[in-house]
Structures are given as C-alpha cells and as structure tokens.
Design a protein around this nucleic acid. Sequence first.
RNA 1: GCCGCGUUGGUCAAGAGGUUAAGACGCCUCCCUUUCACGGAGGAAUCACGGGUUCGAGUCCCGUACGUGGUACCA
Length: 512
Amino acid sequence: MNENKESNIRVRFAPSPTGGLHLGGVRTVLYNYLFAKKHNGTFILRIEDTDQSRFVAGAEDYIYNCLKWCGIEPDESPEKPGSYGPYRQSERKAMYRKYAEQLIENGQAYYAFDTTEDLEKMRSENKTEDNPSPQYDARIRMKMQNSLALTNEVVQQYLQEGKPYVIRIKMPENEIISFNDMIHHEVSFESNLVDDKVLLKADGMPTYHLAVVVDDYLMKISHAFRGEEWLSSAPVHILLWKYLFGLENMPQWAHLPLILGPNGKLSKRDGAKYGFPVYAMNWTDPRSEEFTEGFKEKGFLPEAFINLLAMLGWNGGTEQELFSMEELIAEFSIERVHKSGAKFDYEKAKWFNHEWIKKSTTEALYPLVKNLFETKNVNTQTENYFKTVIGLVKERCTLISDFYEQSVYFFEAPQTLDVEAVRPKWNENKQSFFEILCNQLAELKSWDVIEIENCFKNLATEKSIKPGELQLPMRIMLVGGKFGPAVFEIAHLIGKEETLNRIQSALTKINN
RNA sequence: GCCGCGUUGGUCAAGAGGUUAAGACGCCUCCCUUUCACGGAGGAAUCACGGGUUCGAGUCCCGUACGUGGUACCA
C-alpha cells in the first residue's frame, strides 16, 4: 500500500522558457524541491509561457535537462501531468478570463482601452524630475480610456466593436497591504503607491500577476517560493487572493534573496567577463546565437553545484558545509534562509567541486572522465587501468576537465618536456645514471613499484647522487612537467617498455 | 524620484543583550613531500556610520549612508 500519507504541501517552480537557467533560478528550484521533499510534499514544475513574444525554441527542454542533471525530478510537470493540468500556462489560457471578469463585476478591476501610444503619451506628459516613471494609478486613471472613466455606453460600444482592451486591477485607496513572508516576516505596502497592474493582456493571455494567483489556487499550492525581485509586486498578488479565493487559502510566501555577481546583479555578462559559468548547462540562444557556458560543461559535478547553491543563502547552523541532496533534504529549513543577497564567489564554487571530486568514487567519476578523454581522442586502454589512474589523480583535480592534463601522460608520452627544469643541474654523471638505469630496469624481473624504486636508489647511491636530485628529472621524463603522483608509481603503471622509451627519448631532448 | 528589501573580515557566514565575535573560501608562513596536490600547524583581516534604549548592544529602536529589486499589455 502507499505508505506515504500524501502531505498537503505542494510547491512549484515556475520558470519562463525564455533562455538559460541561471544560478538564481536553480537555487529557487532547489529550495522548492528541498522544502517539498523535507515535508513529504509534491514538487511541481509549471511553465510560465504567457508572453508569446518571448518564446524561445528549446528553452523548455533545456529546463528539463538542467533539472535532470541536478537530480531534481518534478512530481508533476508538463511532461508528467498530475491532476491539476495543464502545466503550461499557454495551455490554460481559457481559465484566466473568467476570474478577470469576476473582478470587473465586483468593481475590483476594469477594462482599459488605452493604446500603447496613449500610455506613452500619459507617461511622457506626467513625467517630471521627481516622478520619472508615472504610474497608471488612482491619480490618473480617470483621465484614461477605461471603463471607470468612460460612460457605460461607450464602453459597451467599444466592447462590441471589438476594440482591443486589457483588464487592470483597480488598486484601492488608502489601504495598507501587508503579509507575512516566511523569510522577511511582516512586509507592508501602501496601496496608493501601487499601480493598476494589467491582469489580462489584449491577446487574452493573463499577465504573470493573474496567472500565478489563479494557478497557485487551482494547483493547490501551499508554499510559494520565488526570487526577491517579486516582492514589490506582492501587494497585487495579495489583493487578488483576497478578492478571488480568500486570504485564508493563500500560499505561504517566501521571497528568496538574490544571488549577486562581482558587481551587483549577477548577469551572464559577468560570466563571460570573469570566466565563470552562470547557467546550469551550456545554452545558445537560437536567435542571437549568443553562447553562455554552463557549470556542467565547465566540469562541475551536479552534487557540487547543488551543494554550493544550497549554501548560498542557507546554512544548517553547524560547521558542516558539504551536503549531499539527501542531507540537504533532511537538514533544510526555511527559517535558516537568509534575508540578504549573497555574492557568488567562483573560488569557493571550485572548492566545492574539488571536495566533491575527492569524495566521489572512481566508479562514479569513470564515465565522466572517460567521456572527456573520448572527446580528446585519447585511447584510455582498459577500464581497470583507467580507473587506477583516476584514483591516483583525483585529489589533484578541481574541475572534471583537469583530469585531462593531470593524467594524459598515463596514456601517451608527453608532447613537451619541461627540459628547462632539469638542464641547469644536468651533468655527465646524471646522464650516465639514466643510461645505466635504463639497462638495469630492462633487466628487472618483476616490474613492481618497490623493485623499480630499489633499483633507482641503489644506482643513485653507487653514483653518489642524492636520489632526490634524480627524481625530478625522472618525473619530467615520464610526465613532462612538475606534477603528478609518485614517480615510481607512474613508471610502474605505464609499464617497462614505455618507461624506457620515455627516458631515452628525454635524454636526447635534454642534450639538444 | 518614489516604494520595497537588505547591510558581521575581500567572499560565504555563525551569532537571537554579557563570547578572547565561530567556521569555510581566498591570501601569507611553516611542516609533510626533494614534483604537484592531499593532509597538518599558524597568521593577517570583520560587526557601514550617527544617535538613542540599557548596568551592558554586532544583537533592540530611530535616522543617515550604501547596496539591491521594483516602478512594462516581461517574467
């Protein structure tokens, strides 16, 4: 039987499919998801595509892919409808109008026939230094073309003629509109300072304001998380709830703090400028062809991406910083979400990834690293060999892409040798050491680490050279540079033949 | 301009009237390692400012400054 008694907690992530999914967006989904899972609730993905002029092909699929990569699976979505569909607002178009009309009947909204030009004119005429952006509000609405200012006959005539109109909310005068936000607590607004927002557009589509309220009601949303950029329009939503469905049915709001870039608001430009990704995954705008790099392709592990995002605006109150999704679900609490915006720090982001690479098993890393080498056309030999290599170098990799540089030399002789690192201290004695070493290594019966090391060290003693002075040249010969795991380990792994080849070829390079 | 929200080291942050103001990233020094990392030990660095309230304020109140969001038939 279904052991989970379905909780009444229902949350939704409601993106507009207009482009890439940036950090802030993913964090909003994350907090939604964590909250839902924590309370055994339902996580819904609703596509807010009411602005047909901003439709971008592929953006919706892109969102699914990002969520999937992040390990976030919606319980209900356009692709997996539950009982409150459709899950795309464009497909719910017919549902909104009646609510807008109901408001008109109750005197809480009105028809407005103003054209774009009328609005522009109103704004330019009322614009002053003290009021650079005049609002369509109580002070001016009686001077406009709407059902409040016009006589009933004219209004009826316009409607019959099919003159285009929008429906605007009629903001009440002298009211304090307040609500209790889960993060900001009591927030209040003066109704006089809020304008008569458009609810239903001329094309019959609702604006965001009407659509969120209606959909949240119809979809039985219990808790609504969104970015803080929405806080200013909250009074419109509160009023709509009051007029249409009752404040007692309104979801609990939580306005999440913004994620900022190095200089204020985080933009995709910041990414290009400072060399860090801003989107979850690579995104190319189909119209402008503008490309924006994603965390995935940059070499981030989804676990790390989720982890770092979770910590940007929340912490568990302990010193723990590394959290898996399961741990986040267990520990997350909305009370511990911060009020203030957090500046994104790429250095810290990389640290999270580094930690997660170290935490990951070679088993888990294998497909990712293998894929990396395939794109570079490197033959990675057997799976076991490859996995040994991964285990050896993973603590040296911050991004998945680092695995290339950190381990190509296990598969191919290095293209270039940092000969300058050995030349200054090179001499006849060392030259002869390596020549003899090759002969001795060739004779070695078993090619294991200890044998190689003993052979190397005994010969060094014989030649009265400190082994340490020879290890660096040896490393350069095998690896090409001053990095990587223990030299004898490397020699052992790449095999006798390859080791000898590399030493010999390096010898000629050093002497030229 | 107006309205909303915010303000603890460079960054993320703990802190809910009495603390030597945690911890992490980054930076620096040292140890380990004759490579690079990992690991370990240290170090520099903070309560935006001004007034209150209080025996006592990073914590409460009020201003100011600064930041940020909104001010669209975009979300």
